[in-house]
Design a protein around this nucleic acid. Structure first.
Lengths: 126, 126
DNA sequence: ATATCATATGAGTATTCGTTCATATGATTA
DNA sequence: TAATCATATGAACGAATACTCATATGATAT
């Protein structure tokens, strides 16, 4: 008849800490949006597309050539990026040119690169 | 007998642009590392764990209580974060306390939050 | 020593997600 | 108005992955 125990018995959970964390945490829907953004960056193919668009507006076939991917692959990934408004696009005749829709993208990638570089430095010290 | 055509025929691919992009792009192994980092942030459960650890060192059972997750779930996700060196941990008696291992984590999340907020502002203008 | 507590880990399952193949759409050119 | 070009889209398949359940481990307390 005991209830399932979620928390450990004694000192734990540390209620003070937990309340402190709860105050500052993102809202429930922000977690969903955040994880969705990171999901877009988490696939190597998409990430390459995003990085390619960092500096230059490019058409689908530029991306295919640049990244050595087939057209369907690129278009499918671009659709995901479009749906999340991470990229914008304009048609010019038969071609469609994509570009990034938000200046934060570059910052996010730069922070992650800094993180990776620090990891590498740590490893070199071993 | 024709080869599969990867690029469009005429103006495209825009060789100048492509070369320009190629100069600045991350190296091949950096893409893999980058996407792995973002993959860690891309699951909502892991993201909640990471955000909880932003301000406070917490034990497993704190995280269970705080996020309303079962112990196995939390431990499995912590293992992924450990393997990628995103968190560090110390044992104190029966409990194990986790904390973030890198100051860039907060910056990455903050940039992503800024991105989301800007998206929301754009939507409100409609 | 044994029981209990906090956490870790392995296997199995279900779901998510990326790629491929085939086809559709929408614009241009002949 | 056909044919072709650039891109989009749908369905199917396979791989990756998150969760659950059961069990193992390592520390403490009795």
């Amino acid at each position: 008849m005991e209830e399932d125990k979620l928390v450990c018995a004694e000192n734990c959970p540390h209620i003070n800490k937990i309340n402190k964390v709860k105050e500052r945490e993102p809202k429930a829907d922000e977690y969903a949006k955040l994880s969705n953004v990171f999901k877009l960056f988490s696939d190597e193919t998409r990430l390459k597309i995003i990085c390619s668009l960092l500096k230059e507006e490019l058409c689908v076939c530029d991306l295919c050539e640049l990244l050595n991917l087939n057209q369907s692959q690129v278009s499918h990934q671009l659709q995901l990026l479009r749906n999340s408004k991470l990229v914008k696009f304009r048609r010019d005749g038969k071609q469609i040119f994509y570009s990034l829709n938000d200046k934060h993208v570059e910052l996010i990638i730069q922070m992650a690169l800094d993180h990776i570089l620090e990891e590498e430095e740590k490893n070199e010290l071993l």
